[in-house]
Nucleic acid binder design. Sequence first.
DNA 1: CTAACGTACAACCTTGTGGTTGTAGATCAG
DNA 2: CTGATCTACAACCACAAGGTTGTACGTTAG
Lengths: 115, 115
Amino acid sequence: MVVDQLDQQSVDRVFAALADATRRDIVTRVMAGESSVSALARNYEMSFAAVQKHVAVLERARLVSKERRGREQIVRGDVGTVRAAARLLGGFEELWRARIGRIDDLLAAAPGDAR
Amino acid sequence: MVVDQLDQQSVDRVFAALADATRRDIVTRVMAGESSVSALARNYEMSFAAVQKHVAVLERARLVSKERRGREQIVRGDVGTVRAAARLLGGFEELWRARIGRIDDLLAAAPGDAR
DNA sequence: CTAACGTACAACCTTGTGGTTGTAGATCAG
DNA sequence: CTGATCTACAACCACAAGGTTGTACGTTAG
């Protein structure tokens, strides 16, 4: 986990990358086990170039990384970025909980409010 | 939490909605406390119509809901959808952990491998 | 060497996104 | 009623997204 605090633009890229079913499926596969780009491409009903583009989007978002091995390019998942995204969602939930807490406080502070 | 299992298209919309800093900011605000559309719009340097569109995107993704109150439209955050998205990311992490587990197993099964 | 494979990248097309302005309908204050 | 406010929505524009095909180049197999 080298960087796990993401700036706004990075967050943009991460969520945009996850907003496509093919790309989520690629992430699923490479999180479960690394794979070459061509091996990934065989799973989908689209051109190799299209899959290549999807991988590039994921790479730019740092959700995956590539490493050349011979003539193949091996794709690997980056769990650190996933964690950073999950933490951001957790922040939303935190705000929500805090708000509910404030509402409870208000109700507690005005016990005779029901006229 | 009425629906908290999302289909592929819904997940697409949720992540696409979160892939914009303005929309994430709106979610932040309405998670912390409900607000009218016009009140939200005053926070940003763009037209009211643009903010209205952002809210519509969030609504379509079920990250927020609107309720009319007099002439105002009150926007509220929907933590259930946020949780569903967080759970999906958790699934990726789960796969990753399982893979690491398998690698450990392999290493454990071949202890004298280091020649 | 030659052929096949894996990859990279450019050009192109269609559709969606994020912004604008403009118009119009409800609702509330005075 | 009148005017201000809040909202809805259509039309338009620039540009990015997601797909295609075609070409080129390095690497491995025979």
